[in-house]
Design a protein around this nucleic acid. Structure first.
Length: 114
DNA sequence: GTTCTGACTGCGA
DNA sequence: GTCGCAGCCAGAA
């Protein structure tokens, strides 16, 4: 069933996001790439906005710049920044500081450097 | 069926 | 540092 490919991809994305350790953050592209969808960052974003996963740490997913994808002052913005702070992540002007950078996350989360 | 939009990314100027 | 352009996929109008 080719149709399950999309579902499988979504499942991988959710798994990837859930695999993000507390206090760390990942980028949309990073998650998408690890899910087997390089360049499909938009799909991850759309998934989060549509999917209703209560156990999904979506607040740990940021843009490639390490910034929150929501517009400054938006509800989602406050929600995400508040959740990150609750996990020990410092958020300054919508930018995450002190947490693992999306690039380093690659080795810290999925593939430990040998 | 086509067209637009979107919690995006990367590169060049 | 900011701005613009092109590429990508899925859902909604």
């Amino acid at each position: 069933m080719a149709a399950s490919e999309t579902n499988d991809a979504a499942r991988r994305i959710f798994t990837a996001i859930r695999a993000i350790p507390k206090g760390e953050v990942a980028g949309y592209g990073e998650v998408a790439r690890r899910a087997g969808l390089p360049g499909r960052a938009r799909m991850v974003a759309r998934l989060l906005s549509t999917a209703s996963e209560p156990n999904l740490p979506w607040h740990r997913v940021l843009r490639s710049d390490g910034r929150i994808a929501f517009p400054d002052g938006s509800e989602g913005f406050r929600e995400q920044s508040a959740r990150l702070r609750a996990e020990g992540v410092r958020v300054d002007a919508g930018k995450v500081v002190g947490a693992r950078k999306p690039r380093t996350l690659d080795e810290s989360l999925w593939g430990p450097p040998e």
